[in-house]
Design a protein around this nucleic acid. Structure first.
Lengths: 142, 142
DNA sequence: GTCGAATTTAGAATAGTTCTTGATATTGGT
DNA sequence: ACCAATATCAAGAACTATTCTAAATTCGAC
């Protein structure tokens, strides 16, 4: 996985191809944008940011690129309630804590060695392939 | 909480008021419908079912009733990816297992004594008020 | 360089949900 | 019981995020 959190956009090197997906200019810029500010932007947020380097990109292309990245397991699509989808370049298993007072979304990782399914009464024979966990609340005093 | 899982709709007794929400005829039928078949119906599913007893009800009213029930903590609204919201009369803390091959959604409860937040690296000072957990996969052999 | 396939673009279309407005029902005060 | 005030309902328009369509552009293999 490409991960150079503190490298400025223009210097960030993204290979020609990731997980079998050819990196076109648009896909590269969309992905670069996600890597750069890990604040879980919406498709429209990404659109606005990518336009700075590719002014002629269209919103439909941003949606196309995000879909391609998601389907190749390069990016994760995260949904909160019925809001716009948000996108996240962290594809490791993790959940999200949504701070209701600021709107900020924090990644939440499992403590080492924890297997979530061990704490659940799953239906007989259930094979879990995908976990989605969202916590909501506030940071700091109530 | 009103819970008479095996009682036919017409005999199910729902009080005049629940958690401060006046039970109008429409709200009562919407809630009765949810209690009757716990298959996580969408607003439109509920609309179709309620029309059997209240043929003149409108979809907007079903949305209004569901919203009122949700806001009074009588019903839970559950969102899966970007699909239509689904509604569930089980307001106890629980997650969902979504069987990808059949589309069926199963409630998943935490094993006794489990406190989910204990297994997570939460941000400093996080106060969790709400947990949403969705698992996806298949039942039976792969 | 040429050809076919993949990608991008712009705008139209779609689906779920919310909003608006006027009608209807319910409640509380007298 | 009557009336005014309030809450709820119905129907359809409006809205928003997303997907689709069709034409133009770009890409990669030959």
């Amino acid at each position: 996985m490409v991960d150079n959190l503190s490298v400025p956009s223009s210097e960030m090197v993204i290979p020609e191809e990731i997980s079998g997906l050819r990196m076109t200019r648009q896909r590269r810029e969309v992905y670069r944008t996600l890597l750069q500010d890990r604040d879980h932007p919406t498709a429209n947020d990404v659109f606005v940011r990518v336009k700075e380097s590719l002014p002629s990109i269209s919103l439909a292309t941003v949606y196309n690129c995000l879909e391609a990245l998601v389907q190749h397991g390069i990016v994760r699509q995260v949904n909160f309630e019925r809001e716009s989808s948000r996108f996240c370049p962290n594809v490791a298993e993790h959940g999200h804590f949504h701070d209701r007072s600021t709107g900020v979304i924090h990644d939440v990782i499992f403590k080492p060695g924890v297997n979530l399914a061990d704490f659940l009464e799953l239906p007989e024979g259930a094979v879990v392939t995908d976990i989605e966990l969202t916590l909501r609340g506030q940071l700091g005093s109530i």
